[in-house]
Simulated scan of single mutants.
Amino acid sequence: MSIEKRLSDLGITLPDASAPAANYVPFVQVGNTLYVSGQISRTDDALILGVLGDDMSVEDGAAAARTCGLQLLAQVKAACGGDINRLKRVVKLTGFVNSTKEFTDQPKVINGCSDFLVEALGDAGRHARSAVSAGALPLGVAVEIEGIFEIS
């Protein structure tokens, strides 16, 4: 089954890939490897702000991480000239969680993105991963995730 069809069957519409907010590019392709810059937690309407361990629950953080997964796939689609079916697999994610010093459930938060990618891509969505705490993230967002992908 194509990725586009699977996303459609799941009722998922990818957002438009966002433009970079500073002096960097949203992705770099080296051979068949695609490096996607960090994607922040946001919906079409607003940034998802918060600090895990303070004003945001693990469940809300996981939902924020899921939006990062949508943004990552949108960037992959843009990098592939609009053909998301060129995506072969997710190789690695690095997830940053805006959290208090005492908060230790960063992996549960980043699971929101990981679970989404496996749901959307099946085995091609399984990946290596890091989930780390950050004392602050750009614009006060709850989560930022960068990714490495294999494409054809």
Rank of each mutant, 00 (worst) to 15 (best):
125 G>M: 04
83 D>N: 12
86 R>C: 05
134 A>N: 13
96 F>K: 10
100 T>M: 14
113 C>W: 12
95 G>S: 12
93 L>G: 09
83 D>R: 01
90 V>D: 02
122 G>W: 05
113 C>K: 11
122 G>Q: 06
79 A>R: 04
133 S>V: 00
133 S>D: 00
91 V>C: 13
110 I>W: 02
98 N>E: 13
127 H>G: 00
101 K>S: 14
102 E>H: 13
128 A>T: 15
97 V>F: 01
76 V>D: 06
119 E>P: 00
84 I>Q: 10
76 V>G: 02
94 T>K: 14
86 R>I: 00
89 R>L: 07
136 A>C: 10
125 G>L: 03
98 N>H: 15
118 V>F: 01
116 F>T: 08
86 R>Y: 00
115 D>Q: 13
95 G>H: 05
125 G>E: 03
120 A>C: 02
131 A>L: 06
87 L>A: 08
109 V>W: 06
115 D>W: 01
91 V>Y: 12
109 V>P: 02
112 G>P: 04
117 L>P: 07
99 S>A: 15
76 V>W: 05
95 G>K: 01
128 A>V: 14
81 G>P: 05
102 E>W: 08
86 R>D: 09
77 K>Y: 02
107 P>F: 01
81 G>Q: 08
90 V>W: 06
131 A>S: 14
85 N>S: 13
132 V>W: 02
131 A>H: 10
82 G>T: 03
107 P>D: 08
110 I>P: 06
132 V>M: 11
79 A>W: 06
81 G>K: 07
126 R>A: 06
78 A>F: 01
84 I>G: 07
119 E>H: 01
125 G>S: 09
102 E>F: 10
81 G>A: 06
136 A>D: 07
85 N>Y: 09
96 F>P: 01
85 N>R: 04
109 V>K: 04
134 A>R: 13
131 A>G: 01
91 V>W: 08
79 A>H: 10
131 A>M: 03
108 K>F: 09
107 P>W: 01
135 G>C: 02
124 A>G: 01
129 R>H: 14
133 S>E: 00
101 K>F: 12
115 D>Y: 03
112 G>C: 05
99 S>Q: 06
133 S>K: 07
109 V>H: 04
84 I>H: 05
134 A>F: 08
130 S>Y: 12
92 K>T: 15
76 V>E: 07
116 F>G: 02
